[in-house]
Design a protein around this nucleic acid. Structure first.
Lengths: 250, 250
DNA sequence: GTCAAGGTAATTGTATACGATTGAGCCGAA
DNA sequence: TTCGGCTCAATCGTATACAATTACCTTGAC
């Protein structure tokens, strides 16, 4: 389907407790909007790799599976298409766009640039409240990383998210913040995986400290450089990881 | 509705021949997909300012106006929501998000960064075919600008688009290219307006030449700087123009 | 006169039904 | 045997119908 040979990311590397989520969602309210639910679940399934093939998403089948009509399924699929997760061929259907390694590298490249930009702007524009939030986020990362428990990775993952959000908020450009959040969301599962690389968490934390230092010093150039390196390293480590685990040409 | 006082962009500054477009589209085919048509027209109306107020988009009203049912209108509105042009409040409806001057400045800031990134990458990665396409695009810009006709602005506007597309394509990052196209599309009408500033077209052309020179020299840093300046200037000129024409607090 | 509560009207969200377009399979002719 | 056209089934896109949620207005009590 694609013109470049690509590495498929194995599903079991990215599994998140989907069934738990589903159950949790179900209990929320009886007649809640179903389109959003379906979108989330499908999105997870695609990102996770359960649907990694260039497979077609049959509206009717999905509708039957969730016990709803085609209408909310259509809305969900359209949203996925807007997010770039599926390709929508007129009068043909929706096909999941396999995000191969090449695509991920590209996305990390863009992500690095956006984060760097946010950092540069934040260094110049951050106010007292933002500074406080950033410090709190950094401390949370530290304490999460300090835990030697098995779920330290999960905890750090969550706090890492908060840390980057704090930078987005501080950049003073709400449009940029929104775009960065979108991309971050899309790379979520892959970022998480990447934390399993040995020593990565500790290294990430050190980078966070340097980033904060640069922002505190109002040194936009340095913040930009540190953040770009921070994200680029993530992309590279991720690529290494995938390549070393599953070097199969398609 | 918004927390900052903002400048409304007057509708008549941005008018494009909508009725002509509508007529042209209508003739195409009888039973073609209507959702896309509606999306385009609504998008134009919002960007143009015909709907600039924080007004609600009534599905039924829109459906009646176009002589279709609510279903395609819903799809169109959802797509607009994904594009960020309207805000979707659950069970309340869709409200056009007024893109004020502040938002535009933010968007231009991000656009500048993305274009700059594309240029930097293109300088390193462009191949012979891309080089040729870029040269052709530049020449087309030159000849469009050379025309002294009244529609020189329109012609240059079109060729300018092609020029930037050529850079996107050459950057070797298809994800970046796609994102840049999205943003470019969204800023379309405003870019066009900005060309009316005296001497702007000539200046833009000069900047294009410098950009191409940098790329040809494989000087990524220079290409980045030139492109960032190129877009930033556009944003600033645009802000000046709007501010000078209609400095009314809302 | 003001505030709160209930009912009603309007609008969104979902279900079902129908038409239109595409792709595949079959048949026939060169 | 192969290629071109035709029929038909499947699926998307749209229309219509219904359910559920929300906001507004009326009414009543303090």
């Amino acid at each position: 389907m694609n013109d470049t040979a690509r590495y498929a990311i194995p599903a079991d590397m990215l599994v998140e407790k989907l069934d738990a989520r589903r159950a949790g969602r179900r209990q929320s309210k009886a007649g809640r909007v179903k389109s959003g639910e379906i979108r989330e679940i499908l999105e997870q399934e695609i990102v996770t790799g359960e649907r990694s093939a260039g497979e077609r998403l049959d509206e009717q089948a999905v509708a039957g599976r969730f016990g709803v009509s085609r209408t909310p399924v259509r809305e969900a699929i359209n949203q996925l298409a807007s997010a770039g997760l599926v390709e929508l061929i007129p009068n043909r259907g929706a096909f999941v766009r396999e995000t191969g390694l090449a695509d991920l590298v590209e996305m990390f490249e863009v992500m690095a640039e956006m984060e760097a930009m946010a950092g540069r702007l934040a260094a110049r524009r951050i106010d007292a409240a933002g500074r406080a939030k950033l410090q709190v986020a950094l401390l949370a990362c530290e304490s999460a990383a300090a835990r030697d428990a098995d779920d330290a990775s999960d905890a750090y993952y969550y706090e890492n998210e908060r840390f980057h959000e704090a930078i987005y908020d501080a950049c003073g450009n709400r449009f940029l913040a929104g775009e960065a959040r979108r991309l971050h969301q899309r790379l979520k599962a892959f970022r998480r995986l990447q934390l399993r690389v040995p020593q990565r968490m500790r290294q990430s934390l050190a980078e966070h400290r340097r980033i904060v230092a640069a922002i505190e010093a109002s040194d936009g150039e340095r913040a930009e450089a540190e953040l770009k390196a921070h994200i680029t390293v993530q992309g590279e480590r991720f690529a290494d990881l995938v390549a070393s685990l599953k070097p199969k040409g398609d």
